[in-house]
Design a protein around this nucleic acid. Structure first.
Length: 427
DNA sequence: AGCACA
């Protein structure tokens, strides 16, 4: 308790800081209110509110010291005091140089994806399905879905922006496999329950070594399974880089190469045990290949290398790096938008545009649906490119006779370019 | 008037 040389801590002698201490705030003042207050003076990079016993103090941190100085000096000489909700707020330099740890896991900038799922209505895609698809990239903290007349949207919250970005890159523009939405088809239960277990179980549950290359054994192959068919099916989960089909032990197998393990894992979970055609035809058995990079002919009827034909599939913006100012994702999430279905990427939404969350503001492009009830009739002029088609080749691809197709995949031009268009007018 | 978090 050395009451040592009483150095007075008057505000006038406080050393300036990028961080300002605010007091006399209204109870449980929100982060948005702090930002509103400080925004005119500069860029606020972090806040901490509801500090103190009464939860009526807060900190705001500016990007630049001069911005903090300008705010303090402005209100020091202003006739109008700083106010929040009509209460006068007292502002001074914090005795710290930065705000630490405001960003709890729920509020890291860019960790939330806004997903627009086109061609579906609420209930067509369950949260379980969304969870399944997005969990492959990392732990999913929260999912919220909402539906307006414009469309069905979901918020997917990851731990960090990097994970969100990864998911965005992998899934943007993709279709959710149709059978997720079909209640009559089995969904791999382990995949859905896998909530708390990432790919590798922490409790010693080691799965088979993962790979970005999947080995697909095709059983009961009554219909031709071409490179194109496989491409269409597996592209629903991410960029397919290479495909090779070969015969082994009298059966047909294929290798499908993705850019990364996570994408392969999603595809594997989703497709394992499922059939390309209804009726048990062309059943897929998936495992991880030991290969990581296939050496295949660029173009043949048994193999394809999609990486060398100029395909600009992935040119994805980063997830938002706008500093977060969230109190919760209901109010002010950092959104790196993605939409699944026929998916369009949405630019990150800056803090100030939190209102843009209103899904009703969404301009909705209603693409050729790839979802329930859509029979995927290929346009007459664009037959599916089957190489030497099946004997009784179904008029509609992926459609065994008198059967409904299993996967919501779209016809693909023979050029090798994926069909995923960017529907106009996202947000 | 007052300065947190782990």
């Amino acid at each position: 308790m050395s009451s040592s040389s009483g150095q007075p801590q008057f505000r006038y002698t406080q050393t300036p800081s990028k961080v300002l201490h605010l007091r006399n705030l209204p109870w449980e003042c929100t982060e948005e209110e702090l930002i509103e207050l400080g925004k005119p003076f500069g860029k606020i990079v972090n806040t901490k509110c509801n500090v103190g016993a009464n939860r009526n103090q807060a900190f705001v941190e500016f990007a630049d010291l001069n911005q903090a100085i300008s705010m303090v000096s402005y209100y020091a000489s202003s006739s109008e005091p700083a106010q929040v909700r009509g209460k006068t707020v007292y502002i001074q330099y914090s005795n710290r140089q930065e705000i630490v740890n405001n960003k709890v896991s729920g509020e890291v900038a860019g960790n939330v994806l806004l997903v627009t799922i086109e061609g579906v209505e609420a209930g067509d895609v369950s949260i379980d399905v969304i969870h399944l698809v997005f969990s492959a990239f990392g732990f999913v903290h929260k999912i919220a879905t909402f539906e307006k007349a414009a469309g069905f949207q979901a918020l997917i919250q990851y731990t960090d922006a990097a994970t969100a970005s990864e998911a965005k890159n992998a899934l943007d523009g993709r279709s959710i496999p149709r059978d997720y939405t079909n209640p009559y088809l089995p969904v791999n239960p382990s995949a859905i329950e896998g909530n708390l277990q990432p790919m590798v179980g922490p409790d010693g549950k080691i799965k088979e070594p993962e790979s970005n290359v999947l080995l697909a054994a095709i059983e009961n192959m009554q219909y031709a399974v071409t490179v194109d068919v496989l491409y269409t099916v597996f592209s629903a989960f991410g960029t397919v880089q290479k495909i090779a089909i070969f015969e082994k032990n009298g059966g047909t197998q294929a290798l499908i190469q993705y850019p990364d393990v996570t994408t392969a894992a999603v595809a594997k979970e989703a497709l394992e045990g499922h059939c390309i055609y209804d009726g048990g035809y062309c059943k897929l058995h998936l495992s991880y290949s030991r290969h990581t990079d296939l050496n295949v002919k660029a173009y043949s009827d048994k193999s394809r290398d999609y990486t060398i034909s100029s395909t600009g599939i992935l040119s994805n913006p980063q997830a938002s790096s706008v500093p977060s100012a969230s109190t919760g994702w209901q109010t002010n999430p950092q959104v790196a938008g993605t939409s699944v279905g026929s998916i369009g990427m949405q630019a990150p939404v800056p803090v100030g545009q939190a209102a843009a969350w209103d899904p009703s503001k969404t301009t909705f492009a209603s693409p050729a649906g790839t979802f329930p009830g859509q029979p995927f009739v290929p346009s007459a002029g664009a037959p599916f490119p089957t190489s030497g088609g099946p004997p009784s080749a179904p008029a509609g691809y992926f459609q065994a006779p008198q059967q409904r197709p299993q996967y919501g995949v779209q016809p693909r031009p023979a050029s090798g370019a994926p069909p995923y268009g960017q529907p106009p007018g996202y947000f």
